[in-house]
Amino acid sequence: MDTKRLNETSKFLSYVLRHEPQAIGLQLDCEGWASIESLIAGAARDGRALDIALIRAVVSSSDKKRFSLSDDGLSIRAVQGHSTASVNLQHVEKEPPEFLYHGTATRFLQSIRQQGLIPGARHHVHLSQEIATAIAVGQRYGKPVLLKIEARRMHQQGFTFFHAENGVWLTAQVPTPFIREGEPDNL
């Protein structure tokens, strides 16, 4: 299948399944599930041609595993990254590794130094176990900076961590005392 079409469809699915389901008249349940039939119909009303084969191709080809299909294949959801108030995924709490990483851009450092990491419009702060992944995320927003998070120490002090289906680590916030900033070699 055409890579450009897969990427465009993935972006559209992220938009409606994470942030604005109402943009196409789509209803998500509290776990973020939407009927694929309703998704296809809503997309058609918005002038987008989706079908089950394209949706399955996007789900299976996503290297970040952003979406999952229900066991019966009739529903789809974004695995994490929601900003819509109607969704409250029940992730499984898990003890994190000693360190996790967060990629950001230099232009956000002043705010992070003052507030720590906060979820903004999303429900959670997103962290990675992989340095390369965190740096790639930071590059999307400008000159990247790697933040090393003392995740195990946070957990020992009562902070809750979740591990999403796609490998992303989630937490409500990261206070500044748990954040080290710098280059990968200096952390």
Rank of each mutant, 00 (worst) to 15 (best):
M1P: 03
K4L: 12
E8S: 08
K11D: 02
K11W: 01
K11A: 05
F12R: 01
S14M: 15
Y15G: 03
V16S: 01
R18H: 05
E20D: 11
P21H: 06
A23R: 04
G25D: 07
C30P: 10
G32T: 08
G42P: 10
R45T: 05
D46N: 10
G47E: 05
R48N: 04
I52V: 06
A53V: 03
A53R: 02
L54T: 00
L54G: 00
I55S: 01
A57I: 01
K64N: 13
S68G: 07
L69G: 00
D72K: 14
I76L: 14
A78S: 10
H82C: 06
T84V: 12
S86V: 13
H91G: 12
K94H: 04
K94M: 03
F99V: 05
T104P: 10
Q110D: 14
S111C: 10
Q115Y: 06
G116E: 10
G116Y: 07
A121I: 15
S128I: 09
S128Y: 10
T133Q: 00
I135P: 01
I135D: 01
A136E: 04
V137Q: 09
G138P: 09
Q139K: 10
Q139G: 07
R140K: 08
Y141G: 06
Y141T: 15
G142T: 10
K143V: 11
K148E: 09
I149H: 09
R153S: 12
G158F: 13
T160P: 08
E165G: 05
N166V: 08
N166F: 06
W169S: 04
L170C: 03
Q173D: 09
V174L: 13
P175A: 09
T176N: 11
I179K: 03
I179D: 01
R180T: 07
G182P: 04
E183M: 09
N186R: 05
